[in-house]
Design a binder for these strands. Structure first.
Lengths: 191, 191
DNA sequence: ATCTCTCTCTACCAACTGGTAGACAACCGC
DNA sequence: GCGGTTGTCTACCAGTTGGTAGAGAGAGAT
């Protein structure tokens, strides 16, 4: 296997396993077997399980942040930014559900994973809060924008959890459900 | 300790631990220590960890169902049943958050815990669906009522997750948030 | 007083966990 | 060719897990 292919494969397999079965329930051996490699190879690339979690969180946040950045930057006429963001989130929920599920999982297990998440998310959050508050906004306004963003983020993750739950209950989310969730997320980001 | 006090203490400690740290991350020793008893005593009352999970799920569903039954039966004038149900759920979320968190946790870890949950919830769900559809309703109407109830239940759990997330993010849910969630849950149960 | 049943205990166990030590092969610039 | 680096491996290890076997204390019934 080429040089860093192994690392990428490990990250992908770990993301899937962490999202599907949870971090604690996933052993290093599980991930290694899924990749087709020995556990010790995995420990070569990530010096501990916690380092692996940190790596997965960082990679997932990178992918998620990039997708949102691109959605914000895409200049579709007459479409407010928050519509672009919400639609991109819904697309991600369909295309890469693991990314959103991982966020729930990380916040569930608490430290030190949440610390890694906080580190990975902080710069994005600061940037978004500054953009939302507008240039020249005071510290308290930026703080309010931050809070609004965190609430919206929690709403997104809760929506992903809800979709997961429905699937598990054998009641697959239908189009009407999706439409309602979209309107709800839009209102959570409304000015 | 009196006869069945031990069993009750084990169930209470296990519920708290399962909700706070997760089922996989909670060892039998953890629960036993919290109760002040040896692991083998715990295994006397519940023949395996899975049996303990089943016991906790059953007890939690009993408490939750009883609270909702009582809310439905309480004849407060001019207050529609769904308002009573939603308010009782919110009260439970504040008073016994573990009950709702456990539901999320169980559905997260999947079988066999979800099987226990399905067994514990089925009679309540059937009864509620029949009541919602009204007497003399056909099978398809009852099925629709069932789906509406499951969707509402998923919404409740998602709301509990959202509250958990906000707390973890250091953004405690405030009164305005609670008001919005209440309205949202009411509309999920709207006719 | 003794027998039986309920409950909790001590003493284990095999399987698995995350992690370490170090051998070995393939490839690199020299 | 050669020494060093990179990547993967086998062989272990100590700690923890869920679970078993069985002893023994206490209470009630006879």
């Amino acid at each position: 296997m080429a040089r860093s292919d192994t690392r990428e494969s490990i990250l992908a397999a770990a993301l899937a396993a962490f999202a599907r079965r949870g971090v604690e329930a996933t052993s290093l051996d599980d991930v290694a077997t899924a990749v087709g490699v020995r556990k010790q190879t995995l420990l070569y690339w990530f010096r501990s399980k916690d380092a692996l979690v940190a790596g997965v969180v960082e990679a997932a946040m990178g992918e998620l942040g990039d997708a949102l950045d691109q959605a914000v930057a895409s200049p579709r006429s007459g479409r407010p930014v928050r519509v672009a963001v919400v639609d991109e989130v819904l697309r991600l929920g369909a295309r890469r559900p693991d990314l959103l599920v991982l966020l729930r999982e990380v916040s569930r297990i608490g430290p030190p994973a949440t610390g890694h998440l906080a580190v990975a998310i902080r710069p994005r959050l600061d940037g978004a809060a500054a953009a939302l508050a507008g240039s020249g906004a005071g510290a308290s306004e930026r703080e309010r924008a931050r809070r609004r963003l965190l609430e919206a983020g929690a709403r997104v993750i809760a929506t992903a959890v809800e979709a997961e739950l429905l699937v598990e209950m054998g009641v697959a989310p239908d189009r009407a459900w999706l439409r309602r969730r979209r309107a709800d997320l839009l209102s959570a980001l409304a000015p």
